[in-house]
């Protein structure tokens, strides 16, 4: 292993430890004790909270903003795929040749989507007003990570740059809004619990 591999591993450990601490805190605090008498079941609402309620047909944030929704979807698919590839690169597993182009295409589509979201944030006054430096940095660093992932599929000599960039991303994740990678699931859980107890979800 080269120095940049170790650098990425150290960053990964920092990231995983930090995120685990966040998760551990949520786990330790547990559900807020609710003294009211439930009329529904949180267990019935959970699948809806994570699947049905996320459907683009259910959410205005999706069906009123389809280009952004599709862009966001591609961006996240590429991010998760990029993380999976990072692990493969780290342990030195070679990617099948025939997979190179499809993988690169997904990463590039994700990066283009990320760039479009970044431009939207910079151009729209309403988005600018809502944004802080973390929003721009998070968007930019993930987009660059996707581009770098696509690049190293064809140019292995770029691995040092790729691993440095990935290490930066991993170091940054727990510091800013990218930690929504875990809080997203916690938020869906909280909604499922809340609306489930009150028999609002799943809708009838």
């Amino acid at each position: 292993m080269d120095w940049y591999h170790w650098m990425a591993i150290a960053a990964l450990l920092f990231c995983l430890t930090s995120l685990s601490l966040h998760l551990l805190r949520l786990w330790r605090l547990g559900n807020h004790h609710d003294f009211s008498t439930p009329t529904g079941k949180p267990s019935a609402a959970m699948p809806y909270a994570f699947v049905g309620a996320m459907s683009p047909t259910r959410k205005e944030s999706a069906y009123l903003h389809l280009p952004t929704y599709v862009g966001g979807l591609l961006y996240h698919i590429a991010t998760f795929l990029g993380i999976a590839l990072f692990f493969l690169f780290l342990v030195g597993i070679e990617i099948f040749q025939w997979l190179m182009w499809p993988l690169a295409l997904i990463m590039i589509m994700g990066a283009v989507s990320g760039a479009a979201i970044l431009v939207k944030r910079m151009v729209k006054p309403q988005m600018r007003a809502l944004s802080n430096p973390d929003d721009y940095i998070s968007n930019l660093i993930v987009t660059l990570f996707q581009l770098a992932t696509a690049a190293v599929l064809f140019w292995p000599q770029l691995f040092p740059v790729y691993f440095v960039l990935t290490a930066l991303l991993l170091l940054y994740i727990p510091l800013g809004k990218l930690k929504h990678a875990i809080y997203f699931f916690a938020a869906r859980y909280q909604l499922g619990y809340f609306f489930g107890r009150r028999n609002v979800w799943p809708p009838r």
Partner: peptide, 19 residues
Amino acid sequence: DAKLITHMNSCVHCGLCAD
């Protein structure tokens, strides 16, 4: 509590809630 901490850390400032 866990609920508050969760919702304090979840918003990504996408602004899609506006409508």
